[in-house]
Amino acid sequence: MPAHMEDRLAIRELVENWAVWRDAGDWARFATVWHPDDGWMTATWFQGPAAEFIAASRDGFERGVSILHFLGGHTADLAGDRAVAQTKMTINQRVVLDGVAADVVCTGRFYDFCARHAGEWKIVRRQPVYEKDRLDVVDPAARLELDPELLARFPAGYRHLGYAQTKAGFTVKTGLPGLTGPAVERLYDEGAKWLAGSATAGDPH
Rank of each mutant, 00 (worst) to 15 (best):
I67V: 11
L176G: 04
W45A: 14
R63S: 13
E185M: 14
D37T: 12
R22I: 11
G99P: 03
D203M: 08
R143F: 12
R134F: 13
S66K: 11
L9E: 12
L195H: 06
R94S: 11
Q165M: 15
L161W: 02
A31G: 07
N92R: 04
D112P: 02
V172D: 10
P2D: 14
T174W: 03
L179E: 15
K88T: 13
Y158C: 12
P128L: 11
G162R: 00
G108Y: 01
R22E: 12
A201Q: 02
A199L: 13
D7P: 02
W34E: 05
R134T: 15
A164F: 01
D189Y: 02
T87D: 07
A102P: 01
A50V: 07
D98P: 01
R143M: 13
G119C: 09
T174Q: 07
G175N: 04
D133G: 09
L179T: 08
W194H: 04
L78I: 04
L14D: 06
Q127M: 15
T200G: 02
E62Y: 01
R94Q: 09
A28W: 05
D103C: 05
K132T: 15
D7I: 04
W34Y: 02
R126M: 14
N17V: 13
L150V: 15
V65I: 13
W121T: 10
V184R: 00
E16N: 14
F61V: 13
T87E: 05
L161F: 08
K88V: 14
I67D: 05
K193P: 01
P49V: 11
A56T: 10
R63L: 15
L187I: 10
T42G: 11
H117M: 12
N17H: 08
T171R: 04
Q93G: 12
Y111H: 06
W34Q: 03
E62P: 04
T75E: 12
V96I: 07
V20R: 08
L187Q: 03
H117N: 12
S57N: 10
M89R: 00
R94A: 13
V138N: 05
G169H: 05
F110H: 04
D189P: 02
P177E: 08
L151T: 13
A196S: 05
